[in-house]
Design a protein around this nucleic acid. Structure first.
Lengths: 220, 220
DNA sequence: ATTAATGATGTCACTTAATGACACTAGGAG
DNA sequence: CTCCTAGTGTCATTAAGTGACATCATTAAT
């Protein structure tokens, strides 16, 4: 089923990621990924259109996780507060945590691996649509609203840049970050590029009252 | 030399673009591009690492053109005024105009052609670095300044989105735009996502005087 | 329980994108 | 003129990716 095949794809993605991290993208070939994942090479090509995009499901998790936080964001809470709550869920399962490490390592390879880079960008490009839908919903605007699209693009760009920066710093410079730091930087980045006042409590579903002056809803 | 080979690459890019537009990416093969460009297939693979990236030089022109405008932007002029001046240079050479048409057609294919999409995004990703350098220079900030990078990312995202939107509207819906409209939309988009006050006159090289309150430098 | 139907997977042949190795040519420096 | 270098073409080879078809598993119908 869709659920079952989704899991199968993830298995392949993890296998590919391990090999990519260990030997680089160019040096790992399709057959190896298949063997590592325990399926035939033909099936790998059925799951993914090419070698690089084998890791796409992992990259997607990066932004999908963020998008999910946006979707479940109560309308009467500010961005910082909500992000803090979400990341406070450090009760992430060991699996999720293991994936997170793999993802960070992959992202750190992006600058040197052109093929990974294209998948990385493609993934976030997909995220733009998803986020636009969420923002439109939150602000009661149309999904075709250009300002909404722009906001989604800029926000995704900010999140992607944070991911790139932090992953690189973590792997290459062995720097480590507290969740508070990450949350703070992310919130600040999103606020600074968002052209729509969606970072703070928004109406009209909030007791039917809109914040006094939506445009001023920026950080102090 | 570098100049000569740059021209050769452009020749291949145009050849590839013609074929991609005519028959789609999948249906055109390496040998055809080579023949169309009048060189051997081996040389095509020396110029470009894969089929899709043959058109990269054209995509790069899209943002490089914009970046060049930013670079040559006098510090005492507002964004709208400068963009208007640049586009007023409709004295673009016939070659440039022909390229522009090809580029628009290519961009319009992006949603349907995953391979083109990845090249399109890669290209703009390169542009982020270039633009960051320009913005840093303009605002007398460091190129490593995170705010600068963020500004470049958001701005490039805005320009890319405008390009995507306009190209699609032009080709798919036969819509046409006046340069004034394009300039207005682009300026508005850039302003709305830019977290740094670089859209209006900036110091300190402007007679050694900074604008009164840089943060308020937004559109009326 | 058996069978028919459907969808996913494996096997193998095949196409073509991409690389390596080497020979050839053009053009500049001595 | 000769040497040297950078770029190009030719040909053989590797590996990514597809097509065709057989096989297997799951479910629904009888």
């Amino acid at each position: 089923m869709s659920d079952r095949s989704e899991a199968a794809r993830l298995t392949v993605a993890r296998a590919a990621a391990r090999l990519f991290i260990a030997h680089g993208v160019a040096a790992t070939q399709g057959g190896e990924i298949a063997k590592e994942a325990g399926i035939s090479e033909r099936t790998v090509w059925r799951y993914f259109r090419n070698k690089e995009s084998c890791v796409a499901p992992l990259f997607s998790r990066s932004w999908a996780n963020f998008a999910e936080q946006m979707r479940s964001w109560p309308r009467d809470i500010s961005l910082e507060a909500h992000l803090a709550t979400c990341f406070d869920l450090e009760k992430r399962s060991p699996d999720e945590l293991a994936d997170a490490i793999i993802i960070v390592r992959l992202i750190a390879m992006v600058p040197d691996e052109p093929d990974l880079r294209s998948i990385w960008l493609l993934s976030y490009h997909d995220g733009e649509d998803a986020l636009a839908a969420i923002i439109a919903d939150r602000l009661d605007r149309s999904r075709n609203d250009f300002a909404v699209r722009l906001c989604a693009v800029a926000t995704m760009g900010a999140v992607r840049t944070i991911d790139e920066t932090i992953s690189l710093a973590a792997i290459r410079h062995r720097q480590s970050f507290t969740t508070a730091e990450v949350v703070a930087r992310m919130a600040e980045a999103i606020r600074s590029v968002s052209n729509l006042p969606f970072c703070d409590p928004v109406g009209p579903k909030l007791f039917g009252i809109r914040p006094a002056s939506p445009v001023e809803g920026r950080a102090p």
